[in-house]
Design a protein around this nucleic acid. Structure first.
Length: 637
RNA sequence: GCCGGCGUAGCUCAGCUGGCAGAGCGGCGGUUUCGUAAACCGCAGGUCGGAGGUUCGAAUCCUCUCGCCGGCUCCA
């Protein structure tokens, strides 16, 4: 007997029937759309389990969202088959923000077809077809799909071991599907078809490219509208939009895809980040170095990059008959510095850090604003240490990374621990020590992480920390990565206490990842409204009329002397309203308004970016305020 | 790289089935001297991403190419 918890909290015991039958007997047919048994979604049409607790789900339960969206995907497929006969079906799952279905259309379709599809979906919802579950024998299923020429479905069928194969049916539409699904199509009330994109069958580029249609569905109109509003808001926070509006950076067709020009304001922010970064690294015992942008092919042969990474490297250039490559990584240069003298065990750990600019050939389709570029500056460092130092150094570097990220207001981290792949170099014991050190560091810091079993690079295990952009796409910033390959290839050694040579451990790490990507994420994180310590312009002085222009200029001058990044907008004879709007759009933290009254009193009226008017203030107070906000790096104004 | 879409003034965009390149903002000049998110008038500004083709005629149709957007794949 299973214990069944109904939506209103009523419980009962039942066995041998499905939840749907049970509810029908009690006249409760409409509401319940699925069930949760030990955290697992179940179909209401399935027989109840023999034991445990089954909670009936209604659309207002968050767990039911997946069922709703999965059914919405079926409605989409049904609509597509009606409008585009001959379309072949692939797969159509629910995903985080909605659902998709992959199709092979007889003729390509475009965005303009989406509204039609949505309308047809509306009709299917309005028709309120009951969604039935049917089981076909393998033969029946094969026959059904052979008849329709559904090659993708046949491929899926071949992988299902069962003899009774689960299908769902609504109206004329039938689909191979494990479920669960809603009781009827009429429950998919609030949905939207969103995007069209290509997707390889089974994610394999050797397979045909299918057409994927994305959509979303919610239990209520409000929730759908809120989601659509959120997408709008995300568009406004997009670093590519803000980058232009705030005049932070640009990328030019004629200069090259993925190559970033940092404008004065973007460069100012970068400089502030760099200075912060340098100070923190020196405090943490890193030694800062500079290395060249190119190196001879021999170097990249030794490092193995020409064997393993060549397709991501720019073509070599010929200099006096020698091949040189632009660097895709900094490691070989750091190693070369290490090797300039014999190192003692007493010298370790050695930590070389560099803001190293590298160039990597990224395929054109993957470039994305500042988040995926071809030329970028890594905040790179290599920690070279003894085995007995590994654990301590790893904990230290993880703590350090979190400290840096937190300074920029990031608090939610998704960490991944990638372990040894089937093909690897180095001793298994070294891998174990490294992997365990990484794991213990994550646990000591209480950072939630998942383990990507076997997904480490061939040369070492790693921790990656991802942060999401405004559209919740995640991007890797931090990486802490062991390297058992390069110390070997470059024959790095140190002399131990016993006078013998030993191989050091090398840890490659980047915290911000690259300045370009980090900046992109940072722009979105703050929606362009940077905290005072990062704001490229902290204060603008706004004269009410041209009569206060000279006073405004002198105020800005005094602020700059005190180290405040201030400008006076005294030229142009613009109205105060105009200037305020402009400053607001530029998201400048402080607006210092100077009218005749303020000029007379030697003060400024302080208006915050939030719109708050704090009234007249002496300059000293403004300066103190800026200094305090800078020191604490608070987002408050 | 692949699929679909998009490239028109500095920016945002209009320009239907081929027939004289437009608006708003911004810029410049002038007027206005103004108190918390856009004062008013005027002027300038374009190889319609680039190359080739079809046509009497191309921003518009076709091909190639560069770039961008959404995905997929990739991401040492």
């Amino acid at each position: 007997m299973a214990k069944v918890i109904l939506p209103q909290g009523e419980t009962l015991e039942a066995a041998g029937v499905s939840l749907q039958e049970l509810l029908r007997e009690r006249g409760l047919t409409d509401e319940v759309v699925g069930a949760l048994h030990d955290g697992e979604l179940r179909d209401i049409r399935d027989p109840l389990p023999t034991e445990g607790e089954v909670r009936a789900l209604t659309l207002s339960d968050p767990e039911a969202l997946e069922i709703l969206r999965h059914t919405a995907a079926h409605v989409l497929a049904q609509a597509v088959l009606r409008l585009f006969p001959g379309t072949k079906l692939a797969i159509g799952p629910a995903i985080r923000d909605g659902f998709y279905y992959d199709f092979e259309f007889p003729e390509p379709i475009s965005h303009e077809d989406l509204p039609k599809i949505e309308e047809e979906m509306q009709r299917i919802v309005a028709a309120d077809y009951p969604v039935e579950r049917v089981f076909l024998s393998r033969e029946e299923a094969l026959e059904l799909y052979r008849e329709r020429g559904e090659a993708y479905k046949l491929e899926l069928l071949a992988e299902i071991p069962d003899e009774r194969i689960s299908f769902y049916k609504q109206g004329e539409f039938i689909d191979l599907c494990r479920g669960p699904h809603l009781p009827s199509t009429g429950l998919v009330k609030h949905f939207k078809v969103l995007e069209l994109a290509g997707a390889y069958w089974r994610g394999d580029p050797n397979n045909p490219m299918l057409t994927r249609i994305y959509g979303t569905a919610f239990p209520t109109r409000e929730a759908l509208e809120e989601y659509l509003r959120w997408r709008e808001e995300a568009r406004r926070r997009d670093h590519r939009t803000l980058g232009q509006q705030l005049d932070l950076y640009s990328i030019h067709n004629e200069i090259g895809a993925g190559l970033v020009l940092w404008h004065p304001k973007g460069a100012k922010i970068r400089r502030i980040i760099e200075e912060f970064w340098i100070k923190e690294h020196e405090r943490e015992g890193y030694q800062l170095i500079y290395t060249p942008h190119i190196g001879k092919s021999r170097l990249w042969e030794i490092s193995g990059h020409l064997d393993f990474y060549r397709e991501s490297m720019y073509a070599p250039m010929d200099i006096e008959g020698q091949e040189y490559f632009i660097k895709p990584m900094n490691c070989p240069f750091h190693i070369a510095i290490y090797k300039t003298r014999t190192r003692s065990y007493r010298d370790l750990p050695i930590k070389y850090a560099e803001l190293g600019t590298v160039y990597r050939y990224e395929r054109s389709g993957v470039l994305h604003g500042l988040l995926r570029v071809r030329g970028f500056t890594q905040d790179d460092a290599h920690i070279i240490c003894r085995p007995d130092q590994v654990e301590g150094e790893i904990l230290r570097v993880l703590r350090f990374a979190l400290k840096i990220l937190r300074a920029f207001g990031f608090s939610e981290f998704a960490a991944h621990l990638s372990t040894r792949p089937p093909k690897f170099v180095g001793a298994p014991e070294a891998w174990d020590l490294a992997t365990e050190s990484l794991r213990r560091a994550l646990e000591a810091e209480g950072i939630p992480y998942d383990v990507k079993e076997g997904e480490g690079a061939f040369y070492g295990p790693k921790i990656d920390i991802d942060i999401e952009d405004s559209l919740r796409r995640s991007w890797q910033l931090t990486t802490i990565q062991f390297d058992f390959n390069l110390p070997e290839r470059f024959d790095m050694t140190y002399i131990g206490q016993d006078g013998k040579k030993y191989r050091p451990y090398m840890i490659h790490r980047a915290i911000l990842g690259s300045f370009e990507r980090f900046f992109g994420i940072l722009i979105e994180h703050y929606g362009g409204a940077f905290p005072v310590w990062l704001a490229p312009i902290q204060a603008v002085v706004l004269p009410v009329t041209e009569g206060q222009g000279a006073y405004a200029d002198s105020v800005a001058e005094r602020l700059r002397e005190a180290g405040v990044r201030a400008e006076s907008w005294s030229r142009g004879g613009k109205t105060l309203r105009y200037l305020i709007r402009e400053a607001q759009l530029q998201k400048i933290p402080y607006m210092l308004i100077c009218g005749p009254r303020e000029a007379e009193a030697g003060m400024v009226a302080l208006r915050l970016r939030t719109g708050e008017d704090l009234g007249p203030k002496p300059l000293e107070e403004i300066i103190a305020r800026v200094r305090e906000r800078e020191a604490s790096r608070t987002p408050e104004l």
